[in-house]
């Protein structure tokens, strides 16, 4: 039996409220009406490059490199995506092709 609707509703509302608060907090601290401190402007300029790097690692965080298949599907697909993207600069081709290649690798090669 699952928990009653009322209890589930409380949990969902907590998840929603905290998620929104975390997303909102920087904008509350540095509202558009005021001059943003130079330090924050600086962070705004450099952070995106660091964060996308962090997100790549975040996506790959559960890859096991010490046991089969040693992260090979991710490595092969990742290298192909970068190579195709540097070559063709076509976002959809790189993402679509890379994902299909990865699916093929985990379903047919390294299963």
């Amino acid at each position: 039996m699952r928990i009653p609707d009322s209890q589930a509703l409380v949990l969902v509302l907590i998840m929603a409220a905290i998620t929104f608060l975390v997303r909102m907090l920087p904008f509350l601290l540095f509202p558009g009406s005021k001059e943003t401190p130079p330090y924050i402007v600086y962070l705004g300029k450099v952070l995106p490059f660091a964060i996308i790097g962090m997100l790549v690692v975040y996506c790959l965080k559960n890859v096991q490199v010490t046991q089969a298949p040693f992260g090979l599907p991710e490595l092969i697909a990742g290298v192909c995506i970068v190579a195709v993207h540097v070559w063709k600069r076509n976002t959809l081709l790189s993402i679509g092709g890379g994902t299909l290649l990865y699916m093929f690798l985990v379903q047919a090669v390294f299963h």
Binding site: V56, A77, G78, I95, Y102, M103
Partner: peptide, 13 residues
């Protein structure tokens, strides 16, 4: 299986 790699691919691109 593996379709979720599309997000990883997006971030890599």
């Amino acid at each position: 299986a593996g379709i979720d790699f599309v997000m990883t691919a997006l971030f890599i691109v």
